[in-house]
């Protein structure tokens, strides 16, 4: 059983670790809407790709739904110190491009971004 103080410590530790590790996070929307649109295959593909390239500073994570069903599967990339990038309608086939172009080579995959509305 934790106390209120320990609760705050968990919070601080989590934030500290994030700052220390400086990891790149790739977050896949894995709610029912995303899964129905193929997000599980995208998630697996991203994991394979990160593993095959031996990218130790990259985590592939899951999240719920951000609300834009029309554009699922959605993948968001958080590079420490840079603004977040959202990729939409990601497929099993073009998921690797996110890792290759953006994560490794630092080039945002513009054709996979949400269009300006």
């Amino acid at each position: 059983m934790i106390t209120l103080k320990e609760l705050s410590e968990i919070k601080e530790r989590f934030i500290e670790n994030g700052k220390k590790e400086q990891k790149i996070n790739i977050v896949v929307g894995l709610a029912t809407c995303g899964i129905a649109a193929g997000a599980k295959a995208v998630y697996n593909r991203l994991n394979e790709e990160v593993k095959a390239r031996n990218l130790k500073n990259v985590d592939v994570k899951i999240a719920g739904c951000i609300g834009m069903c029309r554009l699922e599967p959605l993948v968001e990339v958080y590079v420490p110190g840079e603004s977040k990038v959202t990729y939409v309608n990601v497929t099993e086939d073009n998921a690797a491009k996110i890792v290759n172009d953006h994560i490794v080579n630092g080039n945002i995959v513009t054709e996979m971004l949400v269009e300006k509305d």
């Binding site: 603004s83 080579n105 630092g106 080039n107 945002i108 971004l113 949400v114 269009e115 509305d117």
Partner: peptide, 19 residues
Amino acid sequence: LLKKEKEEAEVKSIEETNF
């Protein structure tokens, strides 16, 4: 030394959309 390919995108994250 990485190859810079594309110019900056206008809307990068979903929070920047009108939606």
